[in-house]
Nucleic acid binder design. Structure first.
Lengths: 148, 148
DNA sequence: ATGTAATCTTATTGATTTAGTATACTTTAG
DNA sequence: CTAAAGTATACTAAATCAATAAGATTACAT
């Protein structure tokens, strides 16, 4: 099942990682990779996709790296998810064809649409700031009661 | 993206089809297949999975077929979805391992869980009766205003 | 009994996607 | 110039998807 795949999870981790770094300072992809346990070259592909979606910026050359292109409070989880979808738009293909068919496809399609709507609503309501703050909170708890 | 795949869509169509047939009467898989435009032998596999999940019953031999094992109002879309998931339980694998990790996996996991919760809530709130009635309603509309 | 109509079971296949790896190239700070 | 970074493309092994194929099993009808 799991609607999230490794690529998306890695992207979200990477971007939360960036949100937790001091801003205005660019951060090497390898640092992110080791902190988050993501295979280095694979993360590069993901960062490239995030860049072309306008979510991160990059500075090339020695001393370069990545940083968020906007403040974490202005980036939603939904944007990351959209950036991670290869080509296949949600509901691109011909709806008329389905409507015409005498089968139950249309009703099923409506259900599917309803589910996707609710997914989008959640993802768009969660910002990177929310996720980053949540992580800080959890880390503090873990520091107080280490490995129960 | 699309959280629904062909197998699941076929299963939902098949089961809505059964809900629309006169009850207590078993219905051949081939009839369902042609009505719903599903490849015959593929539907057989799907019906087998639905059977072992206790959603449909079957009568073997000549004159046999399939029917719902409960009234459509007592079967939710969520059950169909669960029945169509091969083995991979939602959130089977070790949560502790994720919690221990210093990365952002846990926060991402929480988000994922929240999304799945909302999907389940929708799917469990929709019954086969709802879907079947909706289909009947649409078919009536289509009869009144044929191919605008 | 036997034929046949139906479900049931298992295996195979080709295409696609996933999750990486590998390699080479480009840009730029120092 | 050169080393440190990102960029780009191609490749691969494994898994999954959507079927197809072939046969086994069951039960009703005659």
């Amino acid at each position: 099942m799991s609607f999230f795949n490794a690529r998306l999870r890695y992207a979200l981790c990477a971007v939360v990682d960036l949100a937790l770094q001091p801003p205005l300072q660019s951060c090497q992809s390898r640092e992110i990779a080791t902190r988050q346990g993501i295979p280095g070259p694979y993360l590069d592909q993901i960062l490239a996709a995030l860049k072309s979606a306008g979510i991160v910026r990059s500075v090339r050359g020695a001393g370069g790296g990545y940083n968020l292109s906007r403040s974490p409070s202005k980036i939603t989880a939904g944007e990351i998810v959209k950036a991670m979808m290869r080509g296949d738009q949600l509901f691109a293909s011909g709806e008329e064809a389905i409507l015409e068919s005498s089968g139950a496809e249309w009703v099923v399609h409506e259900l599917e649409e309803r589910v996707e709507q609710s997914i989008c609503a959640i993802l768009e309501s969660v910002t990177l700031e929310d996720l980053a703050q949540r992580k800080v909170g959890l880390d503090e708890n873990l520091a107080i009661m280490p490995s129960i």
